[in-house]
Structure formats: structure tokens, C-alpha cells
Amino acid sequence: MNNDEKIILAHGSGGKLTRDLISASLLKKFSNPVLAELDDSARVEVGSNRICFTTDSYVVKPLFFPGSDIGKLAVYGTVNDLAVMGADPLYISCALIIEEGLERSVLERVVDSMADACQVAGVSLVTGDTKVVESGSADQLFINTSGVGVLPEGKEFGIDKITAGDRVIISGTIGDHAIAVLAARQDLGLKLSELESDCAPLNRLIKTVIHRFDGIKFMRDPTRGGLATVLCEIAETAGVSVQVRDEMIPVRREVSGICEILGFDPLYLANEGKVVMVVDDAIADELCDALREEDLGEDAAVIGEISGENPGEVVLRTAVGGSRLITMLAGDQLPRIC
């Protein structure tokens, strides 16, 4: 990618272009072993403490959508980035970039939602920053949150722990968040009856299972880029192949409906309250059952397995007995007629 080019929206969609941007423009300049891991959070040591540290920015439009809003998203998103590392989220920061002209009441609503979310997740917002920019320079409101959490003793998770024979679990239905946001945007004229964003803090769910089970190798939350992107990242980084079965992947009917209408593939849609886990074969079924006992895991399913053949490949077995490769998308999906 040459430096004369412009950044396009697709660079932010979490797929291949995002990764290329990060590796070409960012990784090289900031090279250090912690960053190179490119995990959901950075694992650092401060004195004798093993800490996770993460940051994320939230630019969702519209600000409010079924089941959630930018504030809740900003808190839970960061909490989840810590939780999937196995860390116990403790403190978050919040930086607001507010567009001149934003209604005060809108800001209050967002902040109330954030405060609520902190309570639910059990984290404290301990520091922050507020900036106001000229009208047109930010789309109403941008929020950045950073967070720190503590890694438990004696538990190691990492993409390098994944081996052939492991199985893949998703904690629930995919695509809910992306579709809830899409439907709220009005311009496509699609109305939902029940569907809401799945935006939720995963720390308690994850804590329950990591303390109960040994054999959880790796976890990641399938946010932008969706489940497919996480599976591709696993295949590529761990040097394994992943096989999943279409019929096992839980999808809500409204998500299926909208995907059929617009020509979207739910595998690439963002989720904000789900976790992908790669676990030892021996515990997979029991762990999945344990997830299903919890509110946030009621639709959990074992969707596939890891193998050593054809490393880097992700194969989906279709419901009619065929198969196809799953690859990373270049950008966001667009509604199509063909």
C-alpha cells in the first residue's frame, strides 16, 4: 500500500484492509513484542502483577439502537477485550470527542448509560477527557475507552496454545448487533420486531468457565469482521485449519431474514456480546453446557474443530453436504441486488 493513497471506510471494517493498514503503518513504527501479539488486550507486567491493558474507540451511527447505545457499547466493548484475555476488568477511562451542536440531553443519556454499564460490569471509570470539536469534525460523538484488568494466576491463554483436535465454541447467536444497528439506520427501510443488539459484558460468563474448566486455550470476541474474521485469524496465526459446520452456527431468524434480503453473510457481521472459545476436545461439550446455563450463553454451541492439515484454511461444511472456504473480507458488506 503506497502512502499516496487515501484511507477508505473499508480500512476500518476489521477485515483484510484493516490488518494491512495496521501492519504496514503502525506495527513497524511501534515495534515491541507486546504489540506484536496483536491480541484483544496487551499483556504487560507491572512489578509482579500481570495486567491486561486495552483501548477502543466507538464511532457507531446512530448513537441509539435497539438494545444498546454508544455509551453502553463503549464500556462493554473494552470490558470484553479484557475478559477474553482471561483478565478481571477493573478500571476504565473514557475520552469523549463531542461535535459542536450535540444536544446536551443526548450526551446525558449516553453518560447515564455508561454509568449503568459500569455498574453492571463491575468496573470503575476512574479517569477521562472531554473535547469539543467544530461542527462537521466528528459525527455527533466519538468515545474512546481504555481499560485495565488483572490476569489470574496459573491461567495462560493464547492463540499459540491451540492444537489439532481442539474444538471451537461460540457463546450464542451471531450478527444480532450489526443487524440491530443497520435496521436502526432507517435508510434501508427495514423494521425489526424483536431483535436487539447483543451488547453485554462477558466478564462474569468467562470468569465462571475459566475457573471451572482447565483446557480453555484461546478466546476472542467476534466484533467487527464477525465470526469469520476470528476463525481466519486463528487459522493464520496458529497455523492450523478450522472446520466449522453451518448448521451448528446459531443465527436468529430476523438476522437470517435481513441477510437474505440484502445478500449479507451473517458470518461477517459484528457481535458485541459473544465470545469464541477454542478449547480442549475433552471439555468442549461440558463447557458448552455450562455456558448454556448462563443468560449470556443460552444459545452456545460447539461449531467446529481444529486440525493440522492445510494450515491457514477455514472450511465451512454447508447444510446440504457441500463445503466452501471462508476468507477475510476486504471491507464491509454492502446491500446488493445480484
Binding site: T318, V320, G321, G322, S323, R324
Partner: peptide
Amino acid sequence: TMAIHRHGIPDL
């Protein structure tokens, strides 16, 4: 084209 590939029909 999409439908055929999406369902993995060439395999069959």
C-alpha cells in the same frame, strides 16, 4: 454463481 458456491454445490 453465489448460491452455487455458498452451498458448496460443486462438491456434490
